[in-house]
């Protein structure tokens, strides 16, 4: 388990990194926390010619709340997001879900943007990004562009980034008042990829669901948002009926793949079960005015 020979660069500025990506195209890979890339390298499943290590780029190491958005730079470790009280307040769903990513040791190295760019369909953070409507800031030598999360994930391990682009920042909208958020997951062990996970937000006024967001991990080739289930929550009443309708939409519409850990019908079943659990939790938090903060 030794990687094939590759050239290694550790630029100290974004410009330098973009220059390297432009020069080497698809032969280059960006190394951030390395929690997915290094195993792939050692197994020789990934054989990039060039590794562009962004860990020396200090300008990518920021976590800031700014005009209604939480901006997460490409070098921000998951552990930072997990522990920062501002994140818990601004994007409680992110703070809750990040704890399901691997273990502390992994989150100490792994980055939020790295997890998003890796685009594992069973990973937690891509589902969060889709649920809250995050935006990905991609830069290349040609300039910068923002990609909505729902357009960013194009397939298993595949994103809208072109080979010369670097995901420099992920922007998560701060939770508006009246919303409650929750994340639930079933995995074999704590820290594994989800057999199924659901990220949810509901906006509650006068006890009724006014708006909802639902996104699923482990339930398709990309993190899947389910507008039909959201509509069912918005339009159904009483809550129990709305929940029943949303769960049945989830079971009807999701098309998960089978793998060695879970059959497609188990995943569909879980999607229904977890939809109910996650919405109840988010609803309670919205009503309590707790947002998504865990005790």
């Amino acid at each position: 388990m030794k990687p094939q020979v590759f050239a290694y660069h550790d630029p100290s500025s974004v410009e330098e990194a973009l220059e390297l990506l432009a020069r080497h195209g698809p032969g280059a890979k960006v190394l951030a926390g390395g929690q997915s890339l290094l195993p792939l390298l050692n197994l020789r499943l990934a054989r990039p010619e060039v590794l562009v290590d962004i860990n020396r780029i200090d300008s990518l190491d920021y976590l800031a709340e700014e005009s209604g958005w939480l901006r997460v730079g490409a070098r921000v470790r998951q552990r930072w997001v997990e522990r920062d009280p501002a994140v818990r307040r601004a994007v409680p769903l992110l703070a809750e879900a990040v704890r399901y990513v691997g273990h502390v040791q992994i989150r100490n190295r792994g980055t939020v943007c790295g997890s998003l760019a890796h685009a594992d369909p069973a990973a937690e953070l891509p589902a969060v990004a889709v649920a809250v409507g995050a935006r990905m800031v991609a830069r290349s030598r040609a300039g910068a562009r923002e990609i909505p999360a729902e357009e960013f994930f194009t397939g298993p391990l595949s994103t809208a980034l072109s080979p010369d682009e670097l995901l420099v920042e992920a922007r998560f909208p701060c939770s508006p008042p009246g919303w409650g958020w929750a994340f639930v997951e079933v995995s074999n062990r704590h820290g594994d990829y989800a057999l199924c996970a659901v990220a949810a937000g509901v906006c509650v006024a006068d006890g009724r669901v006014r708006d909802a967001r639902l996104a699923y991990a482990g339930a398709g080739p990309v993190p899947v948002r389910l507008p039909q289930a959201e509509t069912a929550l918005r339009e159904g009443w009483p809550l129990e009926d709305a929940l029943r309708a949303a769960c049945s939409e989830a079971r009807r519409l999701l098309e998960p793949e089978a793998d060695i850990h879970a059959s497609a019908d188990f995943r569909r079943h879980l999607a229904g079960v977890l939809t109910e659990r996650v919405v109840r939790l988010a609803y309670r938090r919205a009503v309590d005015g707790a947002g998504g903060a865990r005790a």
Binding site: L43, R44, L45, P121, A122, G155, P156, L157, S158, Y193, P221, E257, A258, D259, I260, H261
Partner: peptide, 16 residues
Amino acid sequence: GALTLGSRMIPGIARM
């Protein structure tokens, strides 16, 4: 071979 380690991803990738 080593591709078996990606078995979790293969149906999704094949479908894509």
